[in-house]
């Protein structure tokens, strides 16, 4: 399952950029200038490496990471126990809502886990009520009550 051969090889600069830039850039018009200086390379080298990382499929996105809740939106994690025989059918119902961004099958009695988000207050409850009416299964709503860390840092 874990096939090291499928992991693209990285140059030393690419590796450093992946590790450093996950923490964020300085928000200035030329954010890579000081970075290049500290790495003893040119800004061109940095940009070329970033493009190479993109081509290798490693750089998925570069840009601002927003906090949905502070944008006035609501996000919640929802779990459902779905009988195996109905898994695909129920999955289709859940996935049919544009408010459902992610949906994962997991090994547990509660075997379907999805994320619902909306900028409209009260919309999440409405979507969940609708899913329950259509499937006869009760979604367990688990909105976050406290956030301790959102890091998503992967060392390479």
């Amino acid at each position: 399952m874990n096939n090291p051969a499928s992991i693209p090889s990285l140059t030393e600069l690419e590796r450093t950029l992946v590790n450093r830039l996950q923490h964020g850039i300085d928000i200035t018009p030329r954010p890579f200038d000081t970075l290049a200086e500290s790495l003893n390379c040119t800004v061109r080298d940095v940009i070329e490496s970033l493009n190479s990382l993109k081509e290798k499929g490693i750089l998925m996105r570069f840009g601002p990471l927003f906090n949905a809740v502070h944008l006035g939106g609501e996000v919640s994690l929802v779990a459902m126990a779905v009988p195996e025989a109905r898994f695909d059918e129920v999955g289709e119902v859940v996935n049919s809502y544009p408010e459902v961004a992610h949906n994962y099958a997991r090994e547990h009695t509660l075997n379907m886990w999805f994320v619902v988000s909306s900028a409209k207050p009260g919309r999440i409850e409405a979507v969940l009520a609708d899913i329950e009416a259509r499937t006869g299964l009760r979604p367990l709503n688990m909105p976050k009550e406290e956030e301790y860390y959102v890091g998503l840092y992967f060392e390479v």
Partner: peptide, 19 residues
């Protein structure tokens, strides 16, 4: 204000071997 967490690179962690 917390609206933006940071401006950063987001890697595809599967490609980095975190499968």
């Amino acid at each position: 204000e917390g609206v933006v967490r940071r401006i950063a690179l987001v890697p595809n962690h599967y490609k980095l071997g975190y499968v």
